[in-house]
Design a protein around this nucleic acid. Structure first.
Lengths: 207, 207
DNA sequence: CCTACCGATCGGTAGG
DNA sequence: CCTACCGATCGGTAGG
């Protein structure tokens, strides 16, 4: 039964695709329902047969395309035996994603600013199993890593990627390319070196 | 002559103050000229005696309040003899700023999304002297630090602060406070440890 | 500096 | 699924 789907079931998907593209390049308030109608190929009134409101469309989009929702399941599936390996695979995967879709992170920024992050809790709950799996994986990497709680470690890792792409956006088409080249490697190197266990570190060896 | 200013010269400042508050909490497209008029205490028509357009107001605001414009001159003035000292002073100063004004970073995000970063170049030019001064300072910190170009080092440092506050916003009022406490210290520790010179690092010792 | 207005566009709906 | 419409609000201006 559920496998049988008529072509018209594509309508919501088409609407979401058009809305995603518009929201992520123009923001939420900067996008009108008429633009969504035009880009999806339907009349304005038709959209309201599938979604109750403009915000309803946005909510549907972030639940399937918000960076948190996309990244954590993917991170959790990475097969790596060391933090070094994990970080480099994770970083290069995110690079590939952003080459395909440079607006990938915008949904997160837009939700944060225009909705004051009010959906963050529900999105984080959604990926909590993946966060748990990721924590377990990090724990297995063992004593090569400083005694930082796994959740905080995830936060610093994700923060490293965010800070790279963020400053990349900030500098894009302004700073000369030489400075930009290979800088992701530097970000990752600093992260890996920074969490490496060594005698000089001032954290005590608890837990 | 220029010292003599009547009270009415406060009008533009009042308009900018109201607009800053509204833009940074609601975004650019999400804020109307009528809201700016109301919050500044002037009639809608009066605003156009001081600013040609809504975008004109936004441009004036970012030129005096964009995080880049605020932070770089301040960073350049920090008196520190080691990177460790610099990073901790810089981080605690930014914490204080964000406690006073939690929306401090929003202007950067809004410009990035709603204007696609089109003012970034002009803002970076404005603070270029401070970037140069900061680079010189970092060079003086000498061989305790890995051979990373000063500009890239600034980028990683700023990125570290951004990644902390960014993930802080993302997690705010969701994650339990224990995980959040002292996490800025961890971010800074990872950064400092990450850029520390040691024999294991894979960069070659050029310039 | 304000009142009153402009045409355009907004999110959303009725009715078929 | 579309046409035609609703009241509200938009950025901006004329005229005083």
């Amino acid at each position: 039964m559920t496998e049988l789907r008529s072509q018209s079931d594509n309508t919501p998907a088409k609407i979401l695709e058009a809305a995603y593209s518009l929201f992520s390049t123009q923001g939420y308030a900067g996008t009108s329902m008429r633009q969504i109608a035009k880009q999806s190929g339907f009349a304005l009134g038709s959209i309201y047969n599938h979604f109750a409101s403009k915000e309803d469309i946005f909510v549907a989009i972030i639940h399937e395309r918000h960076p948190l929702v996309q990244l954590f399941p993917w991170f959790a599936k990475i097969e790596a035996t060391t933090m070094d390996e994990f970080a480099r695979i994770g970083a290069s995967g995110m690079v590939k994603e952003l080459e395909t879709n440079p607006e990938f992170l915008n949904l997160l920024l837009i939700e944060m600013i225009e909705f004051k992050g009010k959906h963050a809790g529900s999105l984080l709950s959604k990926v909590q199993p993946d966060i748990v799996a990721l924590s377990a994986k990090f724990n297995n990497f063992g004593k090569q890593i400083k005694p930082i709680s796994p959740v905080l470690l995830i936060r610093v890792f994700v923060g490293t990627l965010i800070s790279y792409f963020f400053t990349e956006m900030l500098l894009s088409d302004y700073i000369n390319p030489e400075i930009k080249s290979n800088s992701l490697d530097t970000f990752i190197d600093v992260f890996l070196n920074g969490i490496k266990n060594d005698s000089n570190f001032r954290y005590t060896e608890g837990k």
